[in-house]
Write a protein that binds this DNA or RNA. Structure first.
Length: 556
RNA sequence: UGGUCCGUCGCCAAGUGGUAAGGCAACGGGUUUUGAUCCCGUCAUUCGCAGGUUCGAAUCCUGCCGGACCAGCCA
C-alpha cells in the first residue's frame, strides 16, 4: 500500500478535521438522472466516495432531480448499479433533491419575507435583455420593488398553479450590476407543469439548481460539496443562499477539474449521437467510455479506481489525460488477477507427423505463472493442433531476432508442451497456407533439450478438443486525439477499425466453463472477457479488453 | 477587451520562501517456456515570459503572454 498522493482536497479535509471545524466529513455524489454514467463521472464518484472513505466519513447518493422533463427512473436504476459495480456504497437511503421540495418552498418564502426574493413577470426573452452581457451590467426588473405581501401572494399562486408555465418566476434580489452574472437576480423557481418521477404531479413549480443544491447539501449535513470547475462562478451564489437561509449547516463548495481523456468524447449529447446513429451497438457497447461500456469491455472496477487515482486531482483546466494511462491501469490489474488461457484467434492446422495417429495426452499449465497457489489447468494435446496464422512464416530466412515464431526447418516451443520443428507446409490454389507438417522433439515437454534453441514460444490449441469461439477485437473509437476540439466534428474522426469480429477461433476447452464477465489473459494476445450478455457455454463470446504491452509491434 | 480560475518533463501531478516527488510514456540493460510480467538504470540546473523583493523564489510582488469557464425559466 503506497501513500495516497497529496492533493488539495485531501489537504483541505485534513485541515478541517485537525482544526476541529468538523469532527467527521460528509460528501455527496449528486448526479442528475438524465443519462448514463461515464468515465468522467467515475472520477467524481471516486473523489467523493474515496475522500470520505479515507477520512472515515460518509457519502450520500443524491439525485439532483430538479428538472423533471429530462429525467427518468431508468437512469436512476442504471446509475445506482454503476456506482455499486464501481465498488462504492452510499450512506443510508438514496436521497433525492425532490425529498426537500417542501423545505425548499419554505426557504423561498423565508427569502421573500426578508425582502431577498421577488416574483418577476418578465418573459424569458425579456429577462435575457435585462440581464446585460459579460461586459455590461444588467437592468433591474420592473417587478423588483413589489411588496413582500404581494410577492408572498404571487409565489403562493405560482405554487397553486394559477399561472401558466413561464408566466413568471421567483428571483433572488441580489445585484443586477454584479460582474458575476449568477448574482444578477438569479431565478430560484420556475413554473413547469411536468410529471416528476418522484413527486408525481404534486408540484408545478421547481427550484433551480442553484436554489436546490447548496440547500440540499446543508440539509444533509454535507461538509465538503465537491463539484467541477464550471461551478466556480456559482460559489458566491451558493454562499449567499446559505447565508440568507435558516439552513441547519454550512457546507463548503470546492471545485476541481473534471477528467478529460484523449481519443474519447464524454459529452452526453455526443455519446447519445453515437448510439442514435448506430455507430455503436448501445450505451454499453464495449467501445463506449460509459461505465457500463467499460464493464462490458472487461475493464474492472479496480482498474478504473486505479486510473482515477493515477490521474490525480487538481484545479488545472483544459488538461487531458492520456488514454495510455487508463490502459496501463487496466493491464496492471488484469495482469495480477486474470487467469491465463490459450486461444488461437486465426487457426492454422499443424500435423505432428512423428506422433502416432490418434495420439492424445494432457499437459498442465499454471492458472497464473506468478501465482502457483491458484493451481494448474489441464490442457488436452494431440497429433493435430492449431496455432495462429501470424505465428508461422514460410520465409525461413527470417532472422531469429526478427521473427521469434515458427519458420520452416526451425524450432519453436509450444507453450506448456513440446518443442516442434516445422518440416513442411501445404498451400491451396490461392496460395494460402493451409497446413503445416511438423515434428515434436521427444522429451521436450517441460524440459529444455540440449542443443535445441527454439526461436520463441507460441500458443496453441488442440484441433479436436479445442472449443470454437467468437472473439470481438476492439480498438479506440476515434483516430484523433481530440475528436471534438476546435473545428473538429467528432463524427469525422471515427476509427473505421474499432471493431473486428473474429469467428472460428479455437480456445482451450476449460474456457467453455467461463462465466459471463469473467476475464482472462489469452497468452500472447491480451486480456479478454466473456461477454456479459451474449456468452454462454454453448456459444463462447469473448471481448478483447486490451492487448498485452507490445514493444515489438511498436518498433516494427 | 466584465468577472473568475489555471499555466511545473511528451501526458497527468506533488511542491505554497531554503535550493524540482511520483505515475504514464519513452529509452537502455537483466531475468523469462507469454516479443507479457518482474527487476535495474536513464529521462526538468529548471517551474509560461519579463522585471522586482530576498542571503535565497516554482513558491511573494508587478506587468505581459497563453488557456478554460460564465450572458438556460439546464445541471
Amino acid at each position: 500500500m503506497t501513500e495516497p498522493a497529496s492533493n488539495f482536497l485531501r489537504t483541505i479535509v485534513a485541515d478541517d478535521l485537525k482544526s476541529g471545524k468538523h469532527d467527521t466529513i460528509v460528501t455527496r455524489f449528486p448526479p442528475e438522472p438524465n443519462g448514463y454514467l461515464h468515465i468522467g463521472h467515475a472520477k467524481a464518484i471516486c473523489v467523493n466516495f474515496g475522500l470520505a472513505q479515507e477520512f472515515q466519513g460518509q457519502t450520500n447518493l443524491r439525485f439532483d432531480d430538479t428538472n423533471p422533463e429530462k429525467e427518468e427512473q431508468a437512469y436512476i436504476d442504471a446509475i445506482e448499479e454503476d456506482i455499486r459495480w464501481l465498488g462504492f456504497d452510499w450512506q443510508g437511503d438514496v436521497k433525492f433533491t425532490s425529498d426537500y421540495f417542501d423545505t425548499l418552498y419554505e426557504y423561498a418564502v423565508h427569502l421573500i419575507k426578508n425582502g431577498d426574493a421577488f416574483v418577476c413577470d418578465l418573459s424569458a426573452e425579456q429577462m435575457r435583455e435585462y440581464r446585460g452581457s459579460l461586459t455590461e451590467p444588467g437592468k433591474e426588473s420592473p417587478f423588483r420593488q413589489r411588496s413582500i405581501e404581494e410577492n408572498l401572494e404571487l409565489f403562493e399562486k405560482m405554487k397553486n398553479g394559477e399561472f401558466a408555465d413561464g408566466a413568471c418566476s421567483l428571483r433572488a434580489k441580489i445585484d443586477m450590476a454584479s460582474p458575476n452574472i449568477n448574482l444578477r437576480d438569479p431565478i430560484l423557481y420556475r413554473i413547469r407543469r411536468a410529471h416528476h418521477h418522484q413527486t408525481g404531479d404534486k408540484w408545478c413549480i421547481y427550484p433551480s439548481y442553484d436554489f436546490a443544491h447548496g440547500q440540499g447539501d446543508a440539509i444533509e449535513g454535507v461538509t465538503h460539496s465537491l463539484c467541477s470547475l464550471e461551478f466556480e462562478d456559482h460559489r458566491p451564489l451558493y454562499d449567499w443562499l446559505i447565508e440568507h437561509l435558516p439552513v441547519p449547516s454550512k457546507p463548503r463548495q470546492i471545485e476541481f477539474a473534471r477528467l478529460n481523456v484523449n481519443y474519447t468524447v464524454t459529452s452526453k449529447r455526443k455519446l447519445k449521437r453515437l448510439v442514435d446513429e448506430a455507430v455503436v451497438a448501445g450505451w454499453d457497447d464495449p467501445r463506449m467510455p460509459t461505465i457500463s461500456g467499460m464493464r462490458r469491455r472487461g475493464v474492472t472496477p479496480a482498474a478504473i479506481r486505479k486510473f482515477i487515482d493515477m490521474s490525480g486531482i487538481s484545479r488545472a483546466v483544459g488538461t487531458t489525460v492520456d488514454l495510455g494511462m487508463l490502459e496501463s491501469a487496466i493491464r496492471d490489474d488484469l495482469n495480477d488477477n486474470a487467469p491465463r488461457a490459450m486461444a488461437v484467434l486465426k487457426p492454422l492446422k499443424v500435423i505432428l507427423t512423428n506422433l502416432p495417429e490418434g495420439h492424445t495426452q494432457v499437459v498442465t499449465q499454471p492458472v497464473h505463472p506468478q501465482k502457483p497457489e491458484l493451481g494448474e489447468r489441464e490442457i488436452p494435446f494431440s497429433r493435430e493442433i492449431v496455432i495462429d496464422q501470424a505465428d508461422f512464416n514460410e520465409d525461413s530466412s527470417l532472422s531469429k531476432k526478427k521473427f521469434k515464431r515458427l519458420v520452416p526447418g526451425d524450432y519453436v516451443r509450444l507453450r506448456g508442451a513440446y518443442i516442434i520443428k516445422a518440416e513442411g507446409f501445404s498451400k491451396d490454389d490461392d496460395g494460402n497456407i493451409t497446413e503445416i507438417q511438423a515434428t515434436v522433439v521427444e522429451g521436450s515437454v517441460g524440459e529444455n533439450v540440449e542443443g535445441i534453441k527454439p526461436r520463441g514460444v507460441i500458443q496453441w490449441v488442440c484441433a479436436n478438443a479445442g472449443v470454437p469461439a467468437t472473439v470481438r477485437v476492439y480498438d479506440r473509437l476515434f483516430d484523433h486525439e481530440t475528436p471534438d476540439k476546435g473545428d473538429n466534428d467528432f463524427m469525422d474522426h471515427l476509427n473505421p477499425n474499432s471493431l473486428e469480429v473474429i469467428k472460428g477461433c479455437l480456445v482451450e476447452p476449460g474456457l467453455a466453463q467461463a462465466s459471463p464477465e469473467q476475464g482472462f489473459q489469452f497468452e500472447r494476445e491480451g486480456y479478454f472477457v466473456a461477454d456479459r450478455f451474449e456468452h454462454s457455454e454453448n456459444h463462447l463470446v469473448f471481448n478483447k479488453t486490451i492487448g498485452l504491452r507490445d514493444v515489438w509491434e511498436r518498433k516494427a
